[in-house]
């Protein structure tokens, strides 16, 4: 073997291992379980129009406050079918609400709001936080100082109260977007303001670190413009961190959305939403119908739990150094 061949062998980059989902699942059982939960919830929310049993918005779709049962006949004397003497069976997997809406269908559709608002919030919050951090850290000086103090101030206001104030401040004059109603857009903007300062702080640290790196210095030496350095050299190196921050803030965003809906500041009244279904009207009936208190909360907890454990193991897989920092 010639010297060149030997050197080639010694310095060869080992072939990149193909990502094997099964091996990952064995190494990160918690993460895999989280992924399963996420997939289940997404199927439930995504395929809600196929899986639902009755229109979630319709009053009196079933007997009011009826317990969960499968393929049962209605015992409600007031029900239209009963009065007309039609034999009539229904599925009430999760029971019905005090106004006779079907809770199973509402929980399915409620997942849509939570996932939609959560994902949109986190995307906007992470993107905006990253862009601001990039610009501020790169501009340095007064700009960096001012943005930093602004972030400090926003962090000092408790998140729920900030979102609450923002929600009432901007609620009226927003447009309806396709697939995102005005109320949902308000929630998204109010909650993403809550995540921006935290993302900004972490990202700023990262930009400062990367700016000192040798390859940025090399790019400066060959005369690359600041814009080019930011776009071609710094931004690609932040994607890993962005993914981790996104996956870790998502469950928190879903929780804030549910809390605001619970306070009555979420979606339009009557629209299925996990937070809203736990509040207001149904709260008075929790002692009569345990299912009212259990199922929307269980769905919410399961979703947040799934995203939490998946996010954790995603962080450990992508960048174990971040453990304990995020």
């Amino acid at each position: 073997m010639s010297l060149e061949q030997e050197m080639a062998l010694e310095y060869a980059i080992p072939p990149r291992q193909r990502f094997n989902p099964l091996r990952w699942a064995r190494r990160e059982p918690f993460g895999a379980f989280g992924l399963v939960l996420i997939i289940l919830v997404s199927i439930g929310a995504g395929a809600a129009p196929l899986l639902y049993t009755t229109d979630p918005q319709q009053f009196g779709a079933g007997a009011p406050l009826a317990g969960p049962c499968i393929n049962c006949s209605s015992s409600d004397m007031d029900h239209l079918a009963y009065r007309e003497g039609v034999e009539w069976r229904e599925h009430r997997l999760f029971g019905t609400t005090p106004r006779g809406r079907d809770l199973w269908s509402r929980v399915l559709y409620g997942g849509r709001v939570s996932l939609k608002v959560g994902v949109a919030t986190v995307l906007i919050g992470t993107m905006a936080g990253t862009v601001i951090a990039l610009l501020a850290a790169y501009a340095g000086g007064v700009v960096d100082f001012a943005v930093g103090r602004l972030a400090d101030m926003i962090i000092a206001i408790p998140g729920i109260l900030l979102a609450l104030t923002l929600h009432t401040a901007i609620g009226q004059d927003l447009p309806d977007l396709p697939g995102l109603s005005r109320q949902e857009l308000t929630l998204v903007l109010a909650i993403s303001a809550f995540f921006m300062p935290g993302t900004y702080r972490i990202m700023r640290g990262m930009v400062l670190e990367l700016r000192e790196s040798q390859y940025v210095e090399a790019a400066q030496v060959v005369g690359a413009s600041s814009l080019r350095i930011m776009w071609r050299h710094i931004t690609p190196n932040m994607f890993g961190l962005m993914i981790v921050i996104t996956s870790i803030s998502l469950p928190a965003a879903i929780l804030v959305e549910a809390s605001l809906s619970f306070l009555g500041l979420g979606v339009e009244p009557g629209t299925p939403s996990w937070g809203a279904d736990l509040s207001g009207d149904s709260q008075k009936f929790f002692t009569q119908g345990w299912w009212l208190a259990i199922f929307p909360g269980l769905a919410l907890s399961m979703t947040v739990f799934g995203f939490n454990i998946f996010g954790d193991s995603l962080r450990d897989t992508l960048d174990p150094r971040l453990r304990g920092r995020i």
């Binding site: 918690f30 469950p251 929780l255 549910a258 809390s259 619970f262 937070g275 736990l278 709260q283 929790f286 002692t287 345990w290 208190a293 909360g297 919410l300 907890s301 947040v304 739990f305 939490n308 454990i309 954790d312």
Partner: peptide, 22 residues
């Protein structure tokens, strides 16, 4: 602990308020 950070405060609160009453 993971369950603890995943379960919403307000849900636990309403369960604690309403279940013992039942």
């Amino acid at each position: 602990t993971i369950a603890g950070i995943s379960v919403p405060n307000f849900w636990v609160a309403i369960l604690v308020v309403s279940l013992p009453a039942r």
